[in-house]
Amino acid sequence: MTTTELPLTTPLARLLLGRRAFGPLGGSKAPVLIERNMVVYRRLWLMLASGFFEPLFYLLSIGVGLGKLTGAVDGVPYTDYVAPGLLAVSAMNGAVFDSTFNVFFKMKYAKTYDAMLATPLRVGDIAVGEISWAQLRGLIYSAAFLAIMVAMGLVHSWWALLALPVTVLIGFAFGAVGMACTTFMRSWQDFDLVTLALMPMFLFSGAFYPLSVYSHWIRVLIEALPLYHGIDLLRALTLGRVHVGLLWDVLYLMVMGAIGALVAGRRLERLLLT
């Protein structure tokens, strides 16, 4: 076997999966899935690049253009305020798209995973490989966006270096839950529910304005949503307003990702190995 092994991922995957139909779950051969996706996207680089431009367009429009009219928000220029919010939204959207539409297409229509499972690959390799690829892709977008924030002078602190791993955490939390949801989907129509969950979160979770515009109870509701925690974390890091309370945000996203991965792993195995 010449495949690069990822020994660390195996116990993780094993932890996340329950019933074993076929011995170990695997996970160590995940890099070949990344290799496959790189071959696919070599030809679709423009599509790949577009994932980077979308948050940039929003930053230039809402952040810069509208920012001239809003003045300072929360004690900082509006552009500085909006940028970390857009970073969180982009990490969420990328992860959800990859783990819902793409996974559903490969599972139900292209039978891509069925073909993989006829080879020595295991369900764990597929799950770890797909999630890793989405994370890798998201990481590149996030790094590029952060670089632009630095160039535009929107980053106030060295704490911003931690923003990169945090975008990965956001991607993991949403990607795992997205994949878990996908295993329950029956048709493309069910994906309306995904949009139904994402769009209000995108609009209301404080990416564009402080939660102080809301009444108390709406505020409590928004603070229970996962995107709020991602935005809160990233904004604190790029603006240099770090405090211990941020650990709650981290914990929230970690628990969410772990539950999602647990459900996704069990369900995937049941769906693919019948």
Binding site: L69, G71, V213, Y214
Partner: peptide, 13 residues
């Protein structure tokens, strides 16, 4: 409405 509150209170109102 929500972002509007911020904008209407800002210098560009």
């Amino acid at each position: 409405m929500s972002l509007g509150k911020v904008v209407d209170a800002g210098p560009g109102a």
